[in-house]
Design a protein around this nucleic acid. Structure first.
Lengths: 221, 221
DNA sequence: AGCATCGTTAATGCAGCCTTAATCAAGCCT
DNA sequence: AGGCTTGATTAAGGCTGCATTAACGATGCT
């Protein structure tokens, strides 16, 4: 899952990025509304975290513009102000959720996952597919009821594949989902992670489509 | 299916070509309006992807000229994101579809297939003929309900034959459909692919018309 | 600081696909 | 019937892409 973080305060931005990355989310951080727009038009993101106090444009008006343009991405608004009317105005401007600063990182993560869930049309926190169960929020996976320990990258990869619900994802698409703008990779690392996932979950769960990409095998219940 | 890609940016062009080829489409890439015209007059194509920002002539005027000349080929226009009015103008100038850059490759492929479908007068995504079913977009084939795995060339060949709806296609026509301008072949490779197709689908589906070519046998349900 | 785990890189091996080419079968002609 | 042309069949080789493994470096934990 890839998150765009729009936050001009370096300290806060850094903290959020570290926290989210540690929990397996991919984060692109930008500091201005203009950069946010550029990034969104260039890469695929799943959710936006938007601080309202930006240097170049008020976050609220940016959000309103997005919604006017039919930008459907879930947006979580961060606001320092404790004014109640800000909250109302934020939601009215099209925010899907909001959080007052200072906030608890765990709470932010929980709300992000809730937004992602809602955007995917799921009502429960876990994704089940056949004998596999994934709880993205807690980072827990089980197969046939037995817990399986996955690393950060493996979790992100499995999440992306499951999220695609059996559609084929190219290596580039998977890379987009696993690696932020600032951490591109050169090698076949993704290949290796696929291999590790297969070793832990069984070779048949992830299917190779030669010349195109990979897909999660939904075939067997 | 053969696609003419008119795009001057090497990076974008290369990405599109790789993606389309991986999905079994044949692509000829050119960089200028002049080359596009030359190519179109020389070889048969099924659809054109046209970037509006060309070095020698504005894509829009090129398109208008084509339409004035009764060029009926489906054209998908690529345009930069910010030019909303371009979209309107593009459609008015005769584009059959448009896509904003940057775009998702899957979306491009989906729209191309939609255009091809529309041009062929089909409303559904799959082609059914007797016990055979082909989904060109997903690259899936089934015979008597059982899935059959075909390679890239086999898919392209079967697609061309089905697209012709029982008309005879000469070996040269089939080659045109399978191989782009830059990848001509010398040998009887096409013969071999015909053989493989017959082995997988049954010998009677593809009929040989001696001295002329091949045709898909529509006779038997 | 030392240890452990994870992630990336890079090298190697394997498999599938495509083409080539050689041989075989079948029409067609004289 | 015999030879010639055209297509069918099969095997072999190369290429490409993916799988696999090992090693190195980074990071975090104790």
């Amino acid at each position: 899952m890839r998150v765009l973080l729009v936050e001009d305060d370096d300290l806060i931005a850094h903290g959020i990025q570290a926290g989210l990355r540690a929990r397996g989310l991919t984060v692109d951080g930008v500091k201005t509304a203009a950069q946010a727009e550029t990034t969104l038009s260039a890469v695929h993101c799943d959710v936006v975290i938007l601080d309202l106090g930006l240097p170049d444009e008020d976050g609220m008006s940016l959000l309103q513009r997005w919604r006017a343009d039919d930008m459907a991405l879930p947006v979580l608004v961060l606001t320092a102000r404790d004014a109640v009317e800000d909250r109302v105005a934020g939601l009215r401007a099209g925010a899907d959720d909001y959080l007052l600063k200072p906030f608890d990182l765990d709470e932010l993560v929980a709300r992000l996952h809730a937004l992602l869930r809602r955007a995917a049309g799921r009502s429960v926190a876990t994704i089940e597919q056949g004998a596999l169960r994934l709880d993205p929020e807690r980072g827990e996976v089980s197969l046939h009821g037995r817990p399986v320990v996955l690393s950060r990258r493996e979790l992100a990869l499995l999440g992306a594949l499951l999220h695609a619900r059996g559609r084929i994802l190219s290596v580039d698409q998977l890379k987009d989902s696993l690696y932020g703008f600032s951490e591109e990779i050169e090698s076949n690392a993704l290949n290796v992670h696929i291999h590790h996932l297969r070793r832990k979950l069984g070779a048949d769960l992830i299917e190779t489509v030669r010349g195109v990409g990979y897909r999660f095998n939904m075939g067997d219940a």
